[in-house]
Simulated scan of single mutants.
Amino acid sequence: MNVWYSTLDWRLGAPSADPVGLANYQRFFTSPSGLEVWRVTGIFTFGAVAGSMVLGLLIALVLNKKIPGRTFARTAVFSPYVLSGVGVALVWMFIFDPQRGALMHILNRFGIDSPQWFLDPDANLWMVIIVYVWKNLGYCAVVFLAGLQSIPRDLLEAATIDRAGPVRRFFSVVLPLLTPTVFFLLVTNIIFSMTNAFDILRVMTPTGNGTNTIIFEIYLQSFGQFNRAGYSAAIAVVLFLTLLIITAVQLRFVERKVHYQ
């Protein structure tokens, strides 16, 4: 049904619609606004996935050691992931407030003026990336931690006996054995970043202003100020096909580098 809607010039609530064929798709792939959506989506997805996975792995490496209070630390790291995205966004809006926010006071202590996070489109985009990474890195950390704990200890002990240092052990033993975990997180995080960030984007940047990822553009075009339901349906179809292609490519080529044994 959505594919059929995407071939119509239809405004939400209108009693009739005009068939336009593939005009909505052509407009999305050729208009400056459509190209901007691709640019923003690419930056957001790369920043969100890379930030969550790199920081999640570093945190997992620390939490995998026998340190005091690690059970509490694991709970604290994972807790933001289960919190409401709306609540997280509201709290971070106060933190990023350039007039009274906590971040402003911290930057002022170092003689740095707070960026206009909510007015500058580039700052807006990095702001929501930071919040998304903070909320979701606990998920990556917990999954990485499970992968680290499944690595046989005798392999690490053998590498230590062979005089391999911590860095050598990580890149020669730990990381290759973590490739199934990395592959799983890569697939799921790309899908999550392109589909599950709507709540943060909607609360922190209600009208876009540099944060028009493809999932947010679907909302703005259909339920926002534009009211173009047919065009929004076309973008939704493009999002589905994009995720399908990305996942197929990962399963076909990236999985070849995964070591399951």
Score class of each variant (00 low, 15 high):
M1Q: 08
W4A: 14
W10I: 08
R11A: 06
L12Y: 08
P15Y: 14
S16W: 07
S16G: 06
P19T: 12
V20N: 12
Y25G: 04
Q26K: 01
R27L: 05
T30Q: 15
S31E: 05
S31L: 03
G34M: 02
L35T: 00
L35V: 03
R39H: 01
V40Y: 04
G42D: 03
F44C: 00
T45L: 10
F46D: 02
G47N: 08
A50K: 01
A50S: 14
M53C: 06
M53P: 03
M53W: 05
G56C: 08
G56A: 03
L58G: 11
V62N: 09
N64K: 05
K65A: 11
K65C: 04
K66V: 08
I67G: 05
T71L: 05
T71P: 01
F72T: 12
A73S: 13
A73Q: 05
R74D: 06
F78H: 02
W92C: 04
M93H: 06
F94M: 14
I95H: 02
F96M: 07
F96Q: 14
G101D: 09
G101Q: 10
A102C: 02
A102R: 11
L107K: 04
N108T: 15
F110T: 04
G111T: 11
P115M: 00
W117I: 03
W117N: 10
D120L: 00
W126I: 08
V133K: 00
V133T: 06
N136Q: 13
G138N: 03
C140M: 07
V142H: 02
V143T: 09
F144S: 02
L145R: 13
L148E: 12
R153P: 00
A158G: 15
I161Q: 06
I161T: 12
I161G: 05
D162S: 00
V167C: 02
R168D: 15
R169T: 12
R169N: 11
F171D: 01
V173A: 09
P176R: 04
L177M: 12
L177D: 08
T179C: 12
T181G: 11
F183N: 08
L185I: 05
L186K: 14
I190N: 10
S193A: 15
S193V: 06
T195S: 12
I200Q: 12
I200T: 06
I200G: 01
M204V: 09
T205M: 04
G208F: 09
G210E: 04
G210V: 00
G210D: 08
I214S: 13
I218A: 09
L220A: 07
Q221M: 00
G224L: 11
Q225N: 05
R228G: 05
Y231T: 05
I235W: 01
A236M: 06
V237D: 10
V237C: 08
I245F: 11
V249D: 03
R252Y: 03
R252C: 02
V254S: 11
K257R: 15
Q261K: 13
